[in-house]
């Protein structure tokens, strides 16, 4: 049996918001360590890897591994019904047909209970070994979201170029070009505002802007985002959770 209670429903709301536009159906795999999701978008360009660690929950128990096949659009309709500050509890039996979603306000004078039908979903699990990256950038997630939205208005591709001194986000479209250059700096008072650039080798990669626009829907999960890049390889975009992470692996574009 699974019983997971969040101190606030806001974490789950943000997680669903962050992934529902990339994938529609996915398995939530529940183990004693927490909840994981691995899913690939329909165009098979973006891979999502989510870990909601046991410590993200106020109370958590999962005696046996349980898979919840969830339609995120339906789940989102239910999850939006809770107030962000409500307790959120997910309950499922072993081999469940549905999952119970319970919201309680903190005064306990209102309890809302929903049941979501589960689906039997096929899913290929991809083995993601520890990848070697040539460059790692950590920056404020909101700044990365703005850069993405701004440059996406010019082109459907977004280029990321990392040199020793800086990182350049660049787009080249029909009516013009644009780029944003960031240098590394340390903000002692607000560490989350810092920009950290670690580069072993220079990087020049191009990605589909629409996929990065989907990735930045994770912005509300974390003050900062870490971007890891390697030549001719998928990029990793990571938003840290209180215990766990939301990672997006994005396949690059190549010269034909």
């Amino acid at each position: 049996m699974l019983e997971g209670k969040f101190e606030e429903s806001s974490l789950m709301k943000k997680v669903v918001d962050a992934i529902k536009d990339s994938v529609k159906l996915c398995n939530f795999n529940c183990t004693e360590h927490g909840v994981t999701v691995q899913a690939v978008d329909d165009s098979r360009v973006l891979l999502i890897s989510l870990l909601i660690g046991e410590a993200s929950f106020e109370e958590y128990r999962c005696d046996r591994n349980i898979t919840l096949g969830i339609d995120l659009e339906s789940f989102n309709k239910i999850i939006k019904n809770g107030n962000s500050s409500d307790f959120l509890t997910l309950i499922a039996e072993d081999s469940p047909d549905n999952v119970l979603i319970i919201f309680e306000d903190k005064k306990k004078d209102r309890v809302s209970e929903y049941s979501l039908k589960l689906m039997d979903l096929d899913s290929d699990f991809l083995q993601i070994d520890d990848m070697e990256f040539d460059a790692t950038i950590t920056m404020p997630s909101s700044e990365f979201a703005k850069i993405t939205r701004d440059l996406k208005t010019l082109s459907e591709s977004l280029q990321i170029i990392v040199t020793k001194e800086n990182v350049k986000f660049s787009s080249d479209g029909d009516f013009g070009t644009g780029n944003v250059v960031l240098k590394g700096f340390v903000d002692m008072d607000k560490p989350d505002e810092s920009i950290k650039i670690d580069m072993a080798r220079p990087i020049n990669l191009t990605f589909g802007a629409k996929y990065i626009a989907d990735i930045v829907k994770g912005t509300s999960l974390s003050e900062s985002v870490t971007i890891k890049l390697a030549d001719k390889s998928p990029a990793l975009f990571e938003y840290k959770l209180p215990s766990g992470f939301l990672r997006f692996y994005l396949a690059p574009k190549f010269d034909e």
Binding site: R44, L126, Q127, D255
Partner: peptide
């Protein structure tokens, strides 16, 4: 012209 690669080509099925 740039071609979009496929994420599943980079990771092995397990």
């Amino acid at each position: 012209n740039l071609k979009q690669s496929n994420i599943t080509n980079f990771f092995a099925k397990s």
